[in-house]
Design a protein around this nucleic acid. Structure first.
Lengths: 153, 153
DNA sequence: ACGCTGATGCGACTCGTTCTCGACAAAGAA
DNA sequence: TTCTTTGTCGAGAACGAGTCGCATCAGCGT
């Protein structure tokens, strides 16, 4: 039962973000929020669309994209560019951070700075650019997939 | 004189790369290589296409894309994703490095590590991921554009 | 419950990129 | 040089992601 109450008790932090920002909590937006909340890895717009369609949620593509744009703006999700050239999204915290993405299972983990900021300063110093922003994306195998890939030896 | 011989002696390092890798040196590929060599900033596929068309080089879109793919594979150019979501390319060295891109004029500068590798190691350590690759893109104002923007004060 | 206004859905549209396939030409052999 | 092989090209259709216009609908404050 707790399961069913979940949706009621925690109207989903994504939905909350929309509310706080003054946007209407519409059915499609709640649906998108719910779909995103299910993911712990990255997802593409068309993946979401496919799921939405298979569940007959009746969300039009335009609306889906509008919702994603909105959530990106609210920094509830972040848009990233996979090495393949695809665009994907990951749910995440608003503060500046970076993502490590598992190249096998797609799981995404946020990481704090770890010295990147310093390196960026140094790069600005050496290049003469006034750095305004940067994006760091890391790809590799998560613990889980490492275990699978290298069972031993 | 050395200047004029340059084109002859060094039939464009991009063309060389193709040759070395065992690809045919066709007219369209040479043309694309020449176009790329003219750029010091980033460029998009459609920009190249526009230039090619205006010069009546007769390069089809498909061929242009194929050439860009090929050169990307040979690491002669690198594909990057601008914050706007556009895809752009920058000519560059094969060794691992990063780009600082001027958000105003598009100029791209390669920068060496400056401590990024260390930060990446640290991130791998903390996250538990076995990092395989990473991409760091920096955006800011180049010296030139800084001067224009902040003439004084 | 009412109404204002933002949000949605539909479908057409743009634009970047890829595919198909017959014709062509770069390289190496003869 | 000419022939042969086969990688590459060009044209245009096809595709997929994302956007837009507009009439309709539904949150939510009153």
């Amino acid at each position: 039962m707790a399961q069913y109450d979940f949706a009621v008790m925690e109207p989903n932090s994504i939905v909350q973000a929309l509310d706080v920002a003054g946007y209407r909590l519409t059915r499609p937006r709640r649906a998108v929020a719910a779909l995103i909340a299910e993911h712990d890895g990255h997802f593409t717009a068309s993946e979401l669309e496919a799921v939405a369609r298979s569940r007959r949620l009746g969300i039009s593509r335009a609306t889906l994209f509008r919702a994603l744009d909105l959530l990106t703006e609210l920094q509830v999700v972040e848009r990233l560019d996979l090495p393949s050239g695809e665009h994907a999204y990951v749910p995440c915290a608003a503060a500046h951070h970076h993502h490590v993405i598992c190249s096998r299972c797609g799981r995404a983990t946020e990481v704090e700075d770890c010295g990147v900021a310093e390196a960026v300063l140094e790069i600005g110093r050496r290049s003469g650019y006034r750095i305004e922003s940067h994006r760091l994306e890391l790809f590799g195998l998560c613990r889980h997939c490492q275990a699978k890939t290298t069972p031993h030896a």
